[in-house]
């Protein structure tokens, strides 16, 4: 079932830069979709358009029903936490903005923190957390509204490899447990192959969809998958598609 469709979308910024040219793609409900492309290919712009944070110059974003857009989670490249608020208050923010009562939103936020492995960190301030933990708080904040669609904009790009791998594992677990649809933007071939069912490869300046690749390896994907020949083969395929996209 289709959750949201991007149809012939172009985006030209006020300064004349053409970020996206005639991009079309479908996001199926419940899937894990990666958007893979070099930096400057308009991946982030695409996410912002889907989120409704920017309007396409031409084309449309079609939701299968009206409640879709209201049910979003967004994880940015940086943790983007409010430094003046505790982890719990940061996670509870979306609920607060929607007018939920304090006791209820704090209970839900505590649960969301627990789900990302940060039980007991409710009263901790962002500056006391490591980069990976901050990203977990950010993830909890996106998931606390129980979104149907989770948009992630290179969320783990700034983390070290060990932390990134662990977060990838946990993200897959959360995805499988919650049934949320994920659109994951990344410039890492390895990350996109490990995580997703489907990879949309984009070319740069202006960004357009140049290839699509279905990664058919079943879940759960364990650490063993990361070192398997199968994984390497997928990575090779994705890599060559990305190479073609960049050469085009």
């Amino acid at each position: 079932m289709r959750l949201v469709g991007v149809r012939g979308v172009s985006k030209v910024f006020a300064n004349g830069v053409e970020a996206l040219a005639n991009v079309s793609l479908e996001v199926q409900a419940g899937e894990f979709l990666s958007v893979l492309g070099p930096s400057g290919c308009g991946k982030s712009t695409l996410l912002r358009l889907i989120a409704g944070l920017a309007e396409p110059t031409t084309g449309t974003i079609d939701w299968s029903d009206d409640s879709g857009r209201a049910d979003l989670g967004f994880v940015f490249q940086e943790p983007t936490l409010m430094p003046w608020a505790t982890a719990l208050a940061n996670v509870a923010l979306p609920l607060k903005l929607r007018g939920m009562a304090k006791s209820e939103r704090e209970a839900r936020a505590a649960e969301a923190l627990d789900n990302v492995g940060l039980k007991g960190f409710e009263r901790v301030w962002p500056r006391e957390l490591s980069g990976g933990m901050k990203m977990r708080v950010s993830l909890a904040r996106a998931l606390v509204v129980q979104p149907r669609l989770l948009l992630m904009d290179e969320p783990f790009a700034a983390l070290d490899e060990i932390t990134r791998h662990r977060l990838n594992d946990d993200l897959l677990e959360l995805w499988q447990a919650s049934g949320v649809t994920i659109v994951f933007v990344t410039h890492s071939v390895f990350e996109s192959v490990f995580l997703s069912q489907r990879i949309v490869v984009m070319s740069a300046r202006p960004g357009r969809v140049s290839a699509e690749l279905a990664v058919t390896t079943p879940y759960p994907r364990s650490t063993a998958f990361r070192t398997s020949a199968e994984y390497a083969a997928w990575c090779r395929q994705a890599s060559s598609r990305l190479g073609e996209a960049m050469a085009a």
Partner: peptide, 14 residues
Amino acid sequence: VDPNLLDLFRLYGA
């Protein structure tokens, strides 16, 4: 103000 935080506030209808 962090522009991403501003986006987040917009996203949740603040």
